[in-house]
Design a protein around this nucleic acid. Structure first.
Length: 541
RNA sequence: GCCAAUGUAGCUCAGUGGUAGAGCAACGGUUUCGUAAACCGUAGGUCGUCGGUUCAAUCCCGACCAUUGGCUCCA
């Protein structure tokens, strides 16, 4: 674009950026601005930004009482689902369970913790440790295990942190200056302790320094990690029973809660969190079955896009880069190539809209991220789909094949609805909080014109019938002025308001008002109820 | 984690170096009304946390915590 094409521009913000995108490199100050051919296009762009602000999931989430983030007592990045948000969570789970049941998945449940051995075997610790919460340590102190915590007598954790820190400094110093004085480094280290560290240190200082530090560091401790992914647990479920080729494909599904230690600056409302619920499943299959399974997963994505009215999507096919082998990626160059070719073939054959990006794969295999665009045209990476050729072998997973030999299955990780957190965050913006009836936290409210007893008696059975059919319905029979009752319901984004006055009562009708459509006129009450039930059942848009 | 900005009642926001206000919401009462807001009253805040300066700090300074906008990372 030539500068002559810039007809209108506006500065937007100031921020720092890393030189050449390297986190360890120096930072530059960056001034952001945006430019368009003319004023109209510029204004349109800012209108879109305004609209996005209006639809911000944090704002609507608070207005509708969907979720809360209690940074003081629970922690940043760990949302609490309030009752109305839980409705969304459970409706999505219901959708996923139905869809997966029809597609031949079986459900499993696993704990949130596992021993260190799990993640050493899976490769998470070598490749993924910085995204995991630090371990919980159980120390074997002879006859029993003690959870390490801070306190007067238990300071092994501090102890170990100090040791680790000390060692790093010592190593760095010795590396820089091989003839350096160890005592000097140690003295320097002590001088930099905070008073609290020093206090802990005093407790152990009477012990002979190095020997006891070593003992504490190596000691018999068992480490447990919070799971960052469900796959290792699912692999152990696969391992729990012998399998034949006749069992495959085996599709294990779980809405499991995972915990990832996202850096503080990365947290963002529901979109980037530390506790996340994944619509997860792992498909164990043979190489021959891979293409069909992969296609079926893609079909599931497309089905969901239709339900949520997503017209624009793109799959980002992330492959490895040779220079990352053994560092960012498991060191299996041939398997990488073979699997990537397999995935590429399916993508091309099924006419999926995709782009290929190098060097963004998961550590255990190529990855497909699903990008969708919300109603106002903002892009979200919502779901993921990964192939794992490495980890099943590390866990020694096998099935008995036709020729009586043991073979390692392939594993497809897939999460079409991604995480509840991000998916719901996306849906809030996509719908601007005006959810379709089947999803709406407040589906129906029955409102009487006033608190006349006859009206209430006419309205009550309608509420009861809806409730008996699992409709989320409530009522407002109060003496509050009618217009205010309507306004209250509108502000809550109640999807359908059933208004009842004398005229309706006489005609055996109710007057329907839709949150997103205004008054719809009076209709026979039986018809209205039937239509509500059908709309929910069919998950109408 | 890094750079920057921000943090006053449940929400939206005023305000001041001399221990804080409004609207909405909440609660109590009055109001009987056909599709987005009736009226009166009551209650509600350690002014993010901890330190410092000062006779005196919500206000000035520092550290920390959190959020936001980016960077890096990612579902």
């Amino acid at each position: 674009m030539r500068t002559g094409n810039i007809g209108a521009f506006k500065l937007t913000s100031v921020a720092a950026a890393y030189y050449k995108g390297d986190e360890k490199g120096p930072q530059l100050q960056r001034i952001y601005g945006t430019a368009f051919k003319n004023k109209t296009a510029l204004d349109e762009y800012f209108k879109m930004i305004e609209e996005a602000k209006r639809r911000d999931h944090r704002k609507i989430g608070a207005e509708m009482g969907l979720f809360a983030i209690d940074t003081e007592f629970v922690g940043p990045g760990m949302p609490l689902w309030l009752p109305k948000g839980t409705v969304l969570v459970e409706e999505l789970e219901k959708l996923a369970k139905e869809t997966e049941f029809a597609a031949g998945y079986v459900r499993v449940r696993t704990p949130h913790l596992a021993k260190e051995k799990m993640y050493q075997t899976s490769g998470h610790l070598p490749y993924y440790a910085e995204s995991m919460f630090p371990p919980m340590r159980l120390i074997d102190s002879g006859s029993h295990h003690t959870m390490i915590e801070s306190g007067d007598t238990i300071h092994a954790e501090t102890f170990q942190d100090i040791l680790k820190d000390h060692r790093q400094k010592l190593d760095a110093s010795l590396e820089a200056n091989p003839d350096g004085d160890i005592n000097k480094v140690t003295a320097d280290f002590f001088s930099k302790l905070t008073p609290e560290q020093a206090k802990h240190y005093q407790n152990i200082a009477s012990l002979s320094f190095v020997a006891d530090l070593e003992k504490a560091a190596i000691g018999n401790e068992e480490r447990y990690y919070l799971k960052a992914m469900n796959c290792p647990h699912h692999h152990r479920i696969f391992a729990a029973e012998p399998h034949s080729y006749r069992d495959l494909p085996l599709r294990l599904a779980e809405y499991g809660t995972c915990y990832r230690y996202e850096q503080s600056g990365e947290l963002f409302g529901l979109m980037r969190v530390r506790s996340l619920n994944m619509n997860d499943a792992h498909i164990y299959c043979t190489e021959e079955q891979f293409a069909d399974e992969f296609r079926a997963v893609n079909d599931m994505y497309l089905k969901y896009f239709k339900i949520f009215g997503l017209e624009k999507y793109q799959m980002r096919f992330s492959t490895h880069a040779a220079e990352g082998l053994g560092k960012k990626y498991v060191n299996e160059p041939e398997l990488w190539k073979k699997t990537e070719d397999m995935v590429r073939k399916v993508l091309i054959e099924s006419g999926i809209n995709y782009v290929e990006v190098a060097n963004e794969a998961a550590f255990y295999g190529p990855k497909i991220d699903v990008q969708v665009w919300s109603a106002i045209g903002r892009e979200f990476t919502i779901a993921t789909n990964q192939v794992d050729f490495a980890v099943p072998a590390k866990f020694g997973l096998t099935y008995r094949d036709k020729d009586n030999s043991n073979k390692t299955p392939l594993c497809i990780h897939r999460a079409p609805l991604g995480t509840h957190e991000r998916f719901i965050g996306f849906l809030i913006e996509h719908y601007a909080g005006n959810f379709p009836l089947w999803l709406a936290p407040d589906q129906v409210r029955v409102i009487t014109l006033n608190d006349d007893e006859a009206l209430i008696n006419y309205a009550k059975p309608i509420v009861a019938e809806l409730r008996a059919n699992m409709v989320r319905v409530d009522s407002d029979f109060s003496a509050t002025p009618f217009k205010a009752k309507i306004s209250n319901a509108e502000q809550l984004r109640v999807h359908t308001m059933l208004v009842i006055g004398g005229r309706d009562m006489e005609a055996g009708a109710v007057s329907v008002r839709l949150h997103h459509g205004g008054p719809q006129g009076a209709k026979p009450k039986g018809e209205v109820i039937a239509d509500i039930l059908a709309s929910i059942k069919e998950r109408r848009a």
